[in-house]
Design a protein around this nucleic acid. Structure first.
Lengths: 205, 205
DNA sequence: GTCTATAAGTAGATAGAC
DNA sequence: GTCTATCTACTTATAGAC
């Protein structure tokens, strides 16, 4: 049960929790109302329809996801520092919002049109600039040749997947290896960085 | 619209398509019936409830996902060959079933209990045996030290994510770089293998 | 702004004819 | 096995009192 004073903010917090847990089609307005500690009719008073309320939450989720990318990619720092910063920021965001990636990816898989509203967003620009910096590093011979798009995909995959497969792996890892999955998630800041460095650093002579 | 003669099989094909597209809560029995070219009542005649029909599909999806893992991990071949085989098999499965990972991961995020029925499955055994082989390789100094669990997560992340983010990246990659995303997906068999090799092969002297 | 009550439509599921 | 018709319960959304 949410505790904020402001009713609108209470609704948003409740909606975020329920939508992320159940998805658009699985969420119930009644459940959101209960979680917010208010009446169902009041939801419609504030946001008119379930779809509009969802749009609002989806937009906020997109911002959460993209702000980290922007922050790291737009800074004017050396390439390896940028990678390190991106990884740290991103795992930080995911540790606080572990269910966000699958929620987000599932909703866009089920309804890709929802992305239309974001096509002009900054994320894509800052990603482009990162791709260019990556190309420059390759041309200068400071990292091994790797297609920039593949590189980004590799990096994002290694960051996101451990959170996505947590329900699958956590019980196994815990039972069979005695490892707490959350510890493992925190370790990944260092592990992923090192793995990437190993993969792209030119062979030393 | 599905064309198989056998009604039960027609229903299953239709249900698979609809459930994977819309998820458990988003799917409608009416839509499955339409897709199968039969009546809604007949669905219930064959599978009694939506939940039972979904369970059946979910089980099949799990098998599709885990059979590739089993095949590659249980074979008695050199370590790097095993990696290569796993990557090839897995990307092959995903190219044929691109929406499977997000569907699967979303459903287990929303209802982790559904995994209970699988805990005794072979995948987990064959994954354990791979973890052991990986440890052996590290101890023998044939690959750089890397925590086996982290290694598997890295590999799976790089394999799965490009399919999961396809709705997000495909339009950008296509518009801004003129690259067909499906070409890029096929390239990944080679790219991921090379990336992993670079990351874990000991530094040559 | 917030509530209760209810309308209108839809979903899963069944009855019963063929 | 397969269909049409229908039941029952639930869901979003609104009307209207306070």
């Amino acid at each position: 049960m949410v505790k904020t004073e402001n009713t609108e903010e209470r609704i948003l917090e409740a909606a975020r929790a329920v939508f992320i847990r159940k998805g658009l089609t699985g969420a119930r307005m009644q459940e959101i109302a209960d979680e917010a500690g208010i009446n169902k009719a009041l939801l419609h008073y504030y946001f008119r329809t379930k779809e509009k309320l969802f749009d609002r939450i989806f937009f906020e989720v997109f911002q959460t996801i993209s702000s980290g990318i922007n922050q790291a990619f737009t800074e004017n720092i050396p390439f390896f520092d940028k990678i390190k910063k991106f990884i740290d920021l991103y795992i930080g965001v995911l540790l606080e919002n572990p269910y966000l990636p699958i929620f987000f990816l599932n909703e866009i898989q089920q309804n890709p049109e929802r992305l239309q509203q974001f096509i002009e967003k900054d994320v894509f620009k800052s990603m482009s600039s990162f791709l260019i910096q990556l190309s420059d590093e390759i041309n200068a011979g400071r990292i091994r040749p790797v297609h920039p798009v593949h590189f980004i995909i590799n990096m994002i995959g290694m960051l996101v997947i451990p959170f996505a497969v947590k329900p699958l792996l956590a019980p196994i890892v815990s039972r069979q290896l005695g490892i707490d999955y959350n510890d493992l998630l925190r370790e990944r800041k260092e592990v992923v960085f090192q793995f990437i460095i190993n993969a792209i650093k030119p062979i030393e002579k």
